[in-house]
Amino acid sequence: MSRTVPLNARERRALDGIEAGLSRDASLRRRLRLIGLRARAQRLGRAPALRPGPHLLVLLPVSLFLLVAGITTSAAGFIWAFAGCWLLTGITLLRLLSRTLRGPDRRFPPRPFV
């Protein structure tokens, strides 16, 4: 059984000051929003969705093409092109996985892939 005790004016001002300070804290708001999003995803029984960008949708087929071309022709140019493209694809996949595990942050949009 909980009892509510009215606050006097001094306590009310102190509480209002604390609440104002917490409402200005951007990192706290972001953390609380992420906690809410993760809790909602757990309630719904699903993980956050993977949303690959267009650069990843281009890099994966190009990497596969260069892999097949490098294997069939054994040309050094295809092999080096595959190595560079696969490195970019791996970095992009790691960023996507990291962003998915960390959760969305609408305040800081993802940087464009260079």
Rank of each mutant, 00 (worst) to 15 (best):
R31A: 11
V5L: 12
V5Q: 07
P6A: 13
C85Y: 00
T73F: 06
L64W: 15
R29M: 10
R29N: 06
R13N: 07
S98Y: 11
R31T: 09
D105N: 03
N8L: 02
R24W: 11
D105H: 01
A83V: 12
R31H: 11
V114C: 05
R3D: 08
F108R: 08
P48K: 01
L28C: 00
G70H: 00
A69G: 04
A75S: 12
W80L: 15
P54W: 14
T72M: 10
R33A: 15
P6E: 10
A26L: 09
A47K: 12
G21N: 10
R95V: 04
V62K: 04
C85R: 01
P104W: 09
R102P: 01
P48G: 01
G36T: 11
F65Y: 15
T100P: 02
D105W: 00
P61M: 14
G17W: 09
F82W: 08
F113R: 05
L66D: 00
I18Q: 09
F78T: 01
L15A: 09
A20K: 07
L94R: 14
R95Y: 08
L57M: 11
R33D: 15
A49L: 06
R40L: 15
L96D: 02
P48F: 00
A41E: 13
G17K: 05
R106P: 01
R46C: 08
R3Q: 10
V114N: 07
A83I: 10
R99G: 12
R43Y: 12
F82L: 04
L44A: 15
R43M: 15
L56Q: 03
G21L: 13
S2Q: 08
F113W: 14
D25Q: 07
R40Y: 10
P110I: 00
G84H: 01
G70R: 02
P110R: 02
V58P: 00
R33Q: 14
W80G: 02
A14Q: 14
F113M: 03
P61F: 08
R106A: 12
G70A: 02
F65D: 05
S27F: 14
R106M: 03
F113C: 05
A69Y: 08
